[in-house]
C-alpha cells in the first residue's frame, strides 16, 4: 500500500503541532538569545550572554544536576518496580491480571496534585511512613522525607509507575509462554529461565519506557514543588520562577532550552544504545537459502 495516499489525513495533526507547538517553541528559543531589558521586556541580540551567565552560575549548575539525578533515579526505580509488576500482570490468570491492571492504571485517573498532597501527608515528620519506621525501630528519630530529594523521588515513582507498566506489558507479552515452556522442558528452573530468556529478550525493550519516565520526570513540576518544599531545586521550578514571578523571559527560555537539550541528548543516547544492539544482531549475515539433504 502507498503510504503517501495517507498524507492528507495527517494534515490536521501536523497543522495543530506546527501552530501550537513548533511555532511557540521557536519563539521561546529565540527569546533565549535576546537581552533582558527589565520586567517582561527583552530585545536586541542575538547574544549568548544568557547561556554563559546561566552555565557559569554554580547554583544553576546544581539545578541541572539535580534534575538529571532525579530523572535518572526515578527512571531506574520506576523500571525496577514496574518490570516485575508487568510480568505478574502478563503471567497471572485472566481475572487476577485484570484486577492488578485496573489497580495500577486507575491511579492515572487521579490528578497529580491530589496524589502529591496525599504523599505530603504520608511523608511528613509525623506521617504514616515515619510512624511505621519508628514503630518498627528502623529509625529512632523521624526521617525527613517531605521537603527532601527522597520524598520527591517517592512521589515521582508513584506517579509514573502506571506509564512504565503500560509500556512494559507489551514487551513482556512478546516473550511467548512456549519459550518459557521450552526452557522448563530442558530442565531450567524459573530463575534460570528468567535470567537467560525473559530478561535478555525484554532488556532492549525497557529502554523506551525508561526514557519516557526520564522525560516525564525531567519536565515534572507539580510533584517537585509540592513534595520538595522548596528544597529540591529542579529546572522546571526555576523556569516558573523566572517566567511567572521575575518575568525574566530570556532567562526562563534559557532554562527551558537547557532542559530540552538535556532530555534530547538522553533520548539520543538511549536510541543509539538500542540501535547498536539491533545492528550487531543483523551483521551476522543474511539467511542462507534452504538446503535440503
Amino acid at each position: 500500500m502507498n503510504t503517501r495516499r495517507w498524507y492528507p489525513v495527517l494534515l490536521p495533526a501536523a497543522l495543530f503541532l506546527i501552530v501550537f507547538f513548533v511555532w511557540p517553541e521557536v519563539q521561546f528559543l529565540r527569546l533565549s538569545f535576546e537581552e533582558y531589558q527589565g520586567q517582561a521586556r527583552s530585545g536586541g541580540g542575538p547574544t549568548l550572554r544568557n547561556y554563559t551567565d546561566v552555565l557559569s552560575d554554580p547554583f544553576l549548575r546544581k539545578g541541572i544536576l539535580t534534575t538529571l539525578r532525579l530523572s535518572a533515579i526515578v527512571a531506574v526505580i520506576t523500571a525496577l518496580v514496574s518490570y516485575p509488576l508487568a510480568i505478574a500482570i502478563v503471567r497471572a490468570g485472566p481475572r487476577l491480571a485484570r484486577a492488578m491492571f485496573v489497580i495500577v492504571v486507575s491511579s492515572m485517573f487521579m490528578s497529580g496534585v491530589v496524589r502529591a498532597l496525599g504523599w505530603r501527608v504520608l511523608l511528613g515528620d509525623s506521617g504514616m511512613v515515619n510512624d511505621v519506621l519508628l514503630a518498627l525501630h528502623v529509625v529512632d528519630t523521624p526521617v525527613t522525607l517531605y521537603g527532601s530529594f527522597t520524598g520527591v523521588t517517592i512521589g515521582m515513582v508513584h506517579l509514573l509507575i502506571p506509564y512504565a507498566v503500560l509500556g512494559i506489558i507489551p514487551i513482556v507479552e512478546s516473550v511467548s509462554p512456549q519459550l518459557l515452556q521450552a526452557s522448563y522442558g530442558m530442565g531450567a528452573s524459573r530463575p534460570y529461565t528468567f535470567f537467560r530468556v525473559t530478561l535478555p529478550i525484554t532488556a532492549r525493550g525497557l529502554i523506551a519506557p525508561l526514557l519516557l519516565v526520564f522525560a516525564l520526570t525531567a519536565g515534572a513540576f507539580t510533584t517537585p514543588t509540592l513534595l520538595g518544599g522548596g528544597r529540591v531545586g529542579v529546572l522546571s521550578i526555576y523556569i516558573r520562577e523566572q517566567t511567572l514571578m521575575l518575568l525574566n523571559y530570556p532567562r526562563g527560555a534559557v532554562y527551558a532550552a537547557i532542559l530540552l537539550v538535556l532530555v534530547f541528548a538522553v533520548f539520543l543516547a538511549g536510541f543509539l544504545a538500542s540501535g547498536r544492539r539491533a545492528r550487531r544482531a543483523k551483521r551476522r549475515g543474511p539467511a542462507a537459502t534452504e538446503v535440503t539433504p
Binding site: 519459550l179 521450552a182 526452557s183 522442558g185 530442565g187 531450567a188 528452573s189 529478550i201
Partner: peptide, 28 residues
C-alpha cells in the same frame, strides 16, 4: 517438566530469538 527429561519440539519451534543456533542447542 524440569524433572521429566522429555524433549519437546513446539508448534512454532519456540527457539530463543536472542541466542545463536549453537546456544539454542547448548541450552539444555
Amino acid at each position: 517438566p524440569q524433572q521429566r527429561n522429555i524433549g519437546t519440539v513446539f508448534q512454532n519451534y519456540a527457539l530463543f530469538p536472542h541466542m545463536s543456533v549453537f546456544d539454542n542447542v547448548a541450552y539444555g
